[in-house]
Structures are given as structure tokens and as C-alpha cells.
Write a protein that binds this DNA or RNA. Structure first.
Length: 533
RNA sequence: GAUUCCGUAGCUCAGCUGGUAGAGCAAUACACUUUUAAUGUAUGGGCCCUGGGUUCGAAUCCCAGCGGGAUCACCA
């Protein structure tokens, strides 16, 4: 403990356990030491810094800001609570900014109002001026008024400490024009301490409110049309429904390996077999792969499956769903993403993957064999290796030369069969499947099929996957025999789709990184430096 | 996993070709009863990410590690 602090403590008559302090001084900053000293002082004055009893509020900051001007009589006896974000102290009166869950509002604290007794001004002079800090959570009572500079504010008549803050909050100042100063932009700080990010950066909070709004908009759409929300296993003994590296865990009582799901597709289809006509699930999926601005090890996919439908119906339904989300969220189908405008008004463009390739490379690859395809890819400077088959070459060609061009919502349809082991063969085109991907802003947002319901065909497709696995493809699918058994009982013709919810949120909230639409994105653990005593 | 940039006070950042650390905000003290990036005066606050190396001397140069960002690869 440093001498200056000791002087401060003595001067203020603040007593504390000296030895305890000494131990903690190894890790605590000066400001943290001072706040702990203030905490002790509050207790000494008989003020509980973390009271248990309820604090009743009857208004929010947003309510006051929106309605006070036209309904002044209603704001004469108000009570609200929040966090102190800034203080402008002026001797015997002070202005402060209080932030509740809805907004920020200025409060006005005058000594002679909160301390009506002429003999005792301690509540203001000591508690408010000395012991309350930025970041503290307080409850106030008072009345709303307008300052002479025209700002709607609360004239405080009573205040109560509800929670003392022991860590200094980064201070972000904002001027009249809304320009902010010393804004905390360090991504590591923001993601590791999201709670602080949410307190000091109001736009971050708004993004996550929008995320929830997107999800409830989808849920309302599906529920209104009679779809049934279901829960299926996250722990699976066979990680099916997609091609990806899974996380492996172990169940002790059963003494068996279990995987965190990479997809829920095969379970939802089992439910279609079981007689539900339309089921959906917001599925948290886990994939043990690389991380970047569009990938997090756990992510959310909305999948839904509708019986007696096909992929054309699914395209129409997808158009209606996206239109509704855009309108629910922004009140319009015309959105600005980055510096581009994107229209979510149906109908969306539909184009086959072969036509897309023709459109952007001038080459018709639809009738080509693998040798011809390789020649085309080589001439277009596409990176290849020997293991890539025809389907993989087409997929790469599309990814390299076409994908980024589809800014407006576009359905890319009719993919090669080899890359789609769960998809029904095309009704007319040999070698293709009834599948589409929805591209928006140059990125894949959804992937859908007419689902394969022929159990014999499905078994053969799985067996092809096993051959790929034996050749060393570590992303080939496992065979799920129980799923095959379910198909053998008969699954109605079904259309299914998966939406990348995180990416959809990035798009609709205009965020460049998946970490900005996940409250707690995956991070490496923090290492704490060992202190040598 | 590869390449590259970054890591200094609670926060945002300076710190040049090596000479033992600075600013603004925040904090502390005093003044101020309608301020608003409040103001004025004074004061304190640093394992300069960690560990090695070079050097008389390292925040600075070199190596390794840890953490983060960006790009690439894998993938949604």
C-alpha cells in the first residue's frame, strides 16, 4: 500500500483492515483500492452497499424522454434506477447521467433538496460527493423538469445506493453532435468483458436486441403458419446431417463416446417420419474447425422441414420469411449493408449453378467431364488438387468466380449429386439434385433441398460417403443406421432448409464479424501472470 | 494451422537512430446551487504482455512464448 493512499484514508477517517489491504495491493490498482476504502466507509456510515430489498421503479428513461413533454403531470413523482455514467459536480448541486436498461437520462441533485435538515448535510457532502462513483448503481425518486438549456432531466429528491461498483468503468464521452471520445474499441477487451462493452457502447446493446428481434420474427412467422418448434439432442452418438469435424466428449455412466451435434437435420426428419408435418428448431451446432470473422465453434442454425413440399415451395416460403424479417426489423424491405443497398422484396432471382458459372466465366460446364472441367479451372487460375472430383471442381469454380457477385438475394439451384448426400435427385436433370443455396451480399445465407426420402438411395449415398472416408476425407458423413431405418418406414416427400442465423444477423445488423453478433464469442482463456511473493 | 500487424496508467494513445516513462479522460484534494466532452488549481497513479539474448545501459534492437486483429487455408 502506498503512503499517499494511507494519507487519503486517514484524512477521510476511512478505516480498513491494513493487512488485508497489503495482500490485495499486489493486484489492485490505485483506483480499485480507493473504491474498496469507500465501500468500507459507506458501511461505517450504516449504508448497506448491496441492499437486499426490492427497489420499486415506476418509469424508464426512455419513457420520460418520449412522453414527458406532452404529459407533464404524469412525471411529478417518479422512481427509477440505473448506473451512473457521468457526473458534473458544482459545489452544492450536481448533474449526473443515469443509464437504465432503456436509455440515459440526466439527473439533477441539489444538496438542500436531498438534505432538508439544515444541521445534517452528510448525505450530499460525504455520500454523494465522496463515496459515489461512476459505475455505481443507484435508485432515485424525484420529478421531471426541463433545464434552462432545454434538456429533460430528473430533479432528485431521494437517492439510494443499490450496488457499489469496485472497478473503474472506461469513460466514453460524447459531445453534442454524438461524436464520442476515447471509445473502447479494443476487440479483445470488448469480447472478453462483454458486460462492459454493453454498458459503455449503446450500439452494441442495440445489435443484440436486434438479434433477438430477428429470431422472434422468424419464430412468429413459423408459428403463425402452424410449424411446431421442437428440441432434439445436442449430444449425439453419431454426428450426422452435415460434413464437418465434430467435438468429441464422453459419457461416464454409459461409458461411451458422444459428439456435440454438427447439425440436427437427421433428427428433424425422423420427426417428419413420425407424422409431424412441419417442424423447426433453432439449433446450436458445434464444429471443431477454424475460427474467423464468419466462423465460431458454436453457432446457430434454424432448420425447418415441411412434409408434402418441394424446393420450389421452399424458395417461395424463404422469400416471404426474409421479407417479413426485414420489415419487422427495419420497417422496409430496402436495406443498406455497408455501402450497398439490398432489396428483400420478393421475388428473388433464381439461377442454376451451371448458368451462374456461364454468366460469370462465359463457360458452359454443364456437359463437361472431369478432364474438361480441370482444363477450364486451370485456364481460370483456380487452385486444384488431385483429390477433387467433378462436383468439388464445380463448387470451387462457383465459389471463386461467382459467389461474391450475388449481392441481391439470389437462389442458386440444382447442384451436382456428389456433394449432396441427403438431397433428392432432380426430377428431370441427370446427375443433379433438387437443392438451392440462398446468396445475399456475396455470402451463403441458407441451404435447402427437396429431401431424399428413398431409403435405398439414401443407403447408397451413405456408402459412397464411407468410401470417401476410407480414401482419407475426414469430412465425409458417418452412416446413421437408425435414420435409415426411419426412412424405411416411409418419409413423405419433404422440403427442408437451414439458415445460418449468425450470418443473417450480421447481414441485417450491418456487422462485419460474427463476434459482433455473438454475446460471448469463443476466446482463448486469459493467462494470469504469476505474482512472486 | 500459415503469413502479417499489434500489446505502455482504469480507458484512449504519445514515447524518433537504445540513456531508467508522458498527455487527455478517469481518480484524489480544494473551489463552484441549471451543467452537459462542465470549469479552475494542485496531487497521486506504471511487472512498458512474459521469458531469454545483445549492450556499460532495453519500453525501444534480436529470439522464443502468451494474447488479440487482419489476410489465407478448412468450413456455415
Amino acid at each position: 500500500m502506498n503512503t499517499k493512499l494511507k494519507v487519503f484514508a486517514v484524512n477521510k477517517g476511512i478505516l480498513f483492515n491494513f493487512e488485508k489491504k497489503l495482500n490485495m495491493s499486489q493486484e489492485l490498482s490505485e483506483q480499485e483500492e480507493i473504491r474498496r476504502a469507500k465501500l468500507a466507509e459507506l458501511k461505517k456510515l450504516g449504508i448497506e452497499p448491496y441492499p437486499a430489498e426490492e427497489f420499486q421503479i415506476n418509469v424508464t428513461a426512455q419513457d420520460i424522454k418520449e412522453n414527458y413533454e406532452r404529459d407533464k403531470l404524469n412525471y411529478k413523482d417518479i422512481s427509477l434506477a440505473g448506473r451512473i455514467m457521468s457526473v458534473r459536480d458544482m459545489g452544492k448541486a450536481a448533474f449526473a447521467v443515469l443509464q437504465d436498461s432503456t436509455d440515459r437520462i440526466q439527473i439533477y441533485v441539489r444538496r438542500d433538496d436531498i438534505c432538508p435538515n439544515e444541521e445534517d448535510k452528510q448525505l450530499y457532502d460525504t455520500v454523494w460527493k465522496k463515496l459515489i462513483d461512476l459505475g455505481d448503481i443507484i435508485g432515485i425518486q424525484g420529478y421531471v423538469f426541463t433545464t434552462k438549456t432545454g434538456e429533460t432531466s430528473i430533479h432528485v429528491t431521494h437517492f439510494k445506493l443499490l450496488a457499489k461498483s469496485l472497478k473503474p468503468l472506461p469513460v466514453v464521452k460524447t459531445d453534442e453532435d454524438g461524436k464520442s471520445f476515447d471509445e473502447v474499441t479494443d476487440p479483445e477487451f470488448r469480447y472478453r468483458q462483454r458486460y462492459v462493452d454493453l454498458i459503455i457502447n449503446p450500439s452494441v446493446k442495440k445489435t443484440f436486441e436486434q438479434r433477438t428481434k430477428i429470431i422472434s420474427s422468424i419464430r412468429n412467422f413459423l408459428n403463425d403458419q402452424g410449424a411446431l418448434e421442437v428440441d432434439t439432442p445436442v449430444l449425439q452418438s453419431i454426428p450426422g446431417g452435415a460434413a464437418a469435424r465434430p467435438f468429441l466428449t464422453h459419457h461416464n455412466a454409459l461409458d461411451m463416446p458422444l459428439y456435440l451435434r454438427i447439425a440436427n437435420e437427421l433428427y428433424l426428419k425422423r420427426l417428419i417420419v413420425g407424422g409431424f408435418d412441419w417442424v423447426y428448431e433453432f439449433s446450436r451446432n458445434f464444429r471443431n474447425e477454424g475460427m474467423d470473422r464468419t466462423h465460431n465453434p458454436e453457432f446457430t442454425v434454424l432448420e425447418f422441414y415441411a412434409a408434402y413440399r418441394d424446393y420450389f415451395w421452399m424458395m417461395n416460403t424463404t422469400e416471404k420469411l426474409l421479407e417479413k424479417i426485414a420489415v419487422d426489423l427495419h420497417g422496409t424491405t430496402e436495406l443498406t449493408v455497408g455501402d450497398r443497398s439490398i432489396s428483400f422484396a420478393p421475388p428473388f432471382k433464381r439461377i442454376t449453378i451451371f448458368d451462374a458459372i456461364k454468366e460469370h466465366t462465359g463457360v458452359d460446364v454443364s456437359k463437361m467431364d472431369e478432364v474438361e472441367l480441370r482444363a477450364v479451372c486451370k485456364s481460370l487460375h483456380i487452385d486444384m488438387d488431385e483429390t477433387m472430383g467433378k462436383a468439388k471442381l464445380i463448387d470451387t469454380l462457383f465459389g471463386e468466380k461467382c459467389e461474391a457477385n450475388y449481392i441481391q438475394p439470389t437462389f442458386i439451384t440444382d447442384y451436382p449429386v456428389e456433394m449432396s448426400p441427403l438431397t433428392k435427385k432432380h426430377r428431370t436433370e441427370e446427375g443433379l439434385v433438387e437443392r438451392f443455396e440462398l446468396m445475399i451480399n456475396g455470402k451463403e445465407i441458407a441451404n435447402a433441398y427437396s429431401e431424399l426420402n428413398d431409403p435405398i438411395d439414401q443407403r447408397e449415398r451413405f456408402e459412397d460417403q464411407v468410401k470417401l472416408m476410407e480414401r482419407g476425407d475426414d469430412e465425409a458423413m458417418f452412416i446413421d443406421y437408425d435414420f435409415l431405418r426411419a426412412l424405411e418406414y416411409g418419409m413423405p416427400p419433404t422440403a427442408g432448409i437451414g439458415f445460418g442465423i449468425d450470418r443473417l444477423c450480421m447481414l441485417l445488423t450491418n456487422q462485419p464479424s460474427i463476434q459482433d453478433v455473438l454475446l460471448f464469442p469463443q476466446m482463448r482463456p486469459e493467462t494470469k501472470h504469476e505474482t512472486v511473493n
